[in-house]
């Protein structure tokens, strides 16, 4: 626990909750705090812009303005079908972020449930869950996702999110399990059992709050990772369907060497956008990680 100073005792309702400690750490870390601020502004403007813009107008093919370089009319130029890059960039960013957020939330939910159950109950339940996790983790997940995406009869965004989640919950579950296992051995959990508290309540109201900081850290880092994974799959042509352009869609134009070499305005802004998103989320994640791990905490 963080060493609280003596005068804090007067503040009767002060809580040393994980979230609060994390928030204070974040404020101390200028880079992380700046990232948070930057990210908020970026996302809010992207979402507002994508809400106000007409997606159909952007998706309209215009053969008279193919591969235009950046100009006043098209700030970031146009692609092979004469579509505005800036517009696609904005839609791509909001789509990529939203979908990564969905995948991260879903995997967090599955991973958390599996990890808590396996760690708390142990025994056979733990064994079964852990064997399944070991197995999924030892699969070549990128390839499996690609095959699943190809095979699935009707390819939609929902299906894509589900397929990704099948392969991405395991790491989280393993982490949560090991933390739960350690927490379960503490006497306060045993005390709760002797006090007649039911299992589900012990898990939700005792163990969960005590591992909350790790969950938040993991969520942040996973969010960044999933943006990378989603755009990479879309880049390969096995991610988001055509109807939902992602940042990876723009970058995938660069698979054409001519675009890669001569028409940087098509792919480079999207690549930079991914980098900026992932970097700022990661800076926050790393700061949170330091906050959660008392050993590395900065004074």
């Amino acid at each position: 626990m963080k060493g609280e100073s003596v005068n804090n005792i007067q503040l009767a309702k002060r809580s040393p909750s994980g979230i609060k400690i994390i928030w204070q750490e974040l404020k101390k870390d200028r880079l992380a705090f700046g990232s948070l601020f930057f990210l908020l502004i970026l996302l809010v403007s992207v979402y507002i812009a994508s809400f106000m813009m007409d997606q159909k107008a952007i998706a309209r093919v215009d053969i008279y303005s193919i591969y235009l370089s950046p100009s006043e009319r098209n700030l970031l130029g146009t692609d092979y079908a004469g579509r505005d890059i800036l517009g696609q960039l904005i839609f791509g960013t909001s789509n990529s972020f939203t979908i990564s957020l969905c995948i991260t939330s879903l995997t967090a939910f599955i991973g958390l449930s599996a990890g808590l159950i396996a760690g708390y109950f142990g025994g056979v339940v733990d064994n079964v869950i852990m064997r399944a996790i070991d197995f999924i983790m030892s699969l070549p997940s990128t390839m499996m996702i690609i095959v699943f995406v190809t095979v699935v009869p009707k390819f939609t965004v929902t299906n894509f999110i589900l397929i990704m989640s099948i392969f991405l919950w395991t790491g989280k579950a393993r982490l949560i399990r090991s933390k739960t296992l350690a927490e379960r051995e503490l006497e306060y959990v045993q005390a709760s059992r002797t006090l007649g508290t039911p299992h589900w309540k012990i898990i939700l109201s005792h163990i969960l709050p005590n591992i909350s900081s790790i969950i938040i850290v993991n969520f942040t880092l996973n969010l960044a990772g999933n943006i990378g994974l989603e755009t990479a799959l879309t880049f390969l042509g096995f991610g988001l369907p055509e109807s939902t352009p992602s940042l990876g869609t723009l970058i995938s134009y660069a698979r054409n060497p001519d675009v890669l070499e001569n028409k940087w305005w098509i792919w480079l802004p999207a690549a930079m956008m991914i980098l900026v998103l992932m970097l700022s989320i990661n800076f926050m994640g790393q700061a949170l990680k330091r906050a959660a791990d008392a050993r590395q905490r900065r004074g």
Partner: peptide, 18 residues
């Protein structure tokens, strides 16, 4: 459990810090 209660050894880990 109402009739049988327990006092634990370690006063630090036996109370939930949160």
């Amino acid at each position: 459990r109402k009739d049988i209660q327990m006092i634990f050894q370690d006063p630090y880990s036996s109370l939930n810090p949160k």
